[in-house]
Nucleic acid binder design. Structure first.
Lengths: 210, 210
DNA sequence: CGCGTTTTCAACAAGGTGTTGACTCTCCCG
DNA sequence: CGGGAGAGTCAACACCTTGTTGAAAACGCG
């Protein structure tokens, strides 16, 4: 997944490529991906626009490279996630969801740009979906083991539940980060999301009737 | 909210404006909004590109007009939503969520285009958020009344819950419609979403410990 | 008819993307 | 150490899309 765009690499070209990436991440912190031109990326890295194309074949490739780093970090962190669900299910889920929140907050610009670019770019979509998949796999594994030990009802398919809850997290967190309306307060997000996860995974499906 | 783009209206100009809208909706059925040029919209309506600007000031205005219709329909349908939650909470919620699903499916092209355009266009964002807001208001009203009658625990803020669950619906349904990965089967969507809603609203927050 | 308003579009301007071809620089090998 | 093979660079070009302008055609009504 590394080695995007460039043919070979020897001396100082790397620095240029890096400079483009650094410029892109900085600009993404202050405005939307669509509002950043290749000209700006090039100028920020101290090169001309045509030279930009020597390093990346398009603006989307830059986003892809940025996203690539985030994905790598995510897969690492998912692997390190504690699985102490038996002793403290609520706490364990909250910590897992907290990690999700942390990644979004830490790479806010890249995450929101990638989510928007996903609609038009196949490679971005594939890469993002890989990341979501690793979260979904983690969640559904845990849900299944909670069902196996009798702590959670088996009525609902673990995979469907995991997908829906992870998509909820993605959407709620982006709404919070972008300060959309409607959204919830940033300070309440983790609490609300955890509550929904826990009730959905462990709760019964029979509300009290009138 | 009607009367977008045009100064006055008298005779046959309306048909042209309508033809643009019809063309847009048809094209949105087969590809993404970004991949449709104003040239195509104009040709589809039998006019030249500059003439398009007589009717709409931009491509986004066309989407806005399309979305406007959908929003109107939504507000109408939310008002007509049954509130028979006391006798059959699960069924009532499922029917309400089903309406949400129906609207997305019926206006699939407009909905997905609007969601994508929301990121860059303030007016689209405002209009979409108005629609979400009417769903959120409905949901939180019902949640609060369920809490008041003692059927649902009051531990969680009704508004925060309503926002999160509605955002989940938005995201899960678009994932299903776009056949994303990960997603769930279209036939399972309503069932899974209802389950999560019901457990989140009525369930307790205390999972069984190991 | 004749005059104002509506409607139309050729032509232009601006701004972005991606490509070409030639030039420089570096460094390594003969 | 001199000459080539890349790597790296960019002016200039071609192209597409959006949005504007100004003048002309069509229409309705007195």
């Amino acid at each position: 997944m590394a080695q995007r765009g460039r043919r070979t690499r020897r001396v100082s070209g790397d620095e240029r490529q890096d400079a483009i990436l650094v410029t892109a991440e900085a600009l993404l912190g202050e405005r939307a991906f669509d509002d950043i031109s290749i000209e700006e990326l090039a100028r920020g890295a101290g090169i001309s626009r045509p030279t930009f194309y020597f390093y990346f074949s398009s603006k989307d490739e830059v986003l892809l490279a940025l996203l690539d780093r985030v994905i790598t970090e995510v897969e690492h962190r998912v692997g390190d996630l504690p699985r102490d669900f038996e002793s403290d299910p609520a706490g364990a889920w909250t910590r897992s969801i907290g990690m999700f929140v942390e990644v979004f907050v830490a790479h806010r610009g890249v995450a929101t740009a990638a989510i928007a670019a996903r609609a038009r770019n196949d490679e971005v979509r594939a890469l993002w979906s890989k990341s979501m998949q690793s979260w979904v796999d983690f969640s559904s594994d845990v849900i299944r083991s909670e069902q196996a030990r009798g702590a959670a009802p088996e009525a609902t398919d673990a995979h469907d539940l995991a997908v829906s809850l992870n998509l909820m997290n993605e959407r709620v967190i982006t709404a919070v980060l972008n300060q959309e309306t409607p959204a919830i307060a940033e300070s309440r997000a983790l609490d609300v999301l955890s509550t929904i996860w826990i009730r959905s995974i462990y709760g019964s499906a029979n509300p009290g009737r009138g």
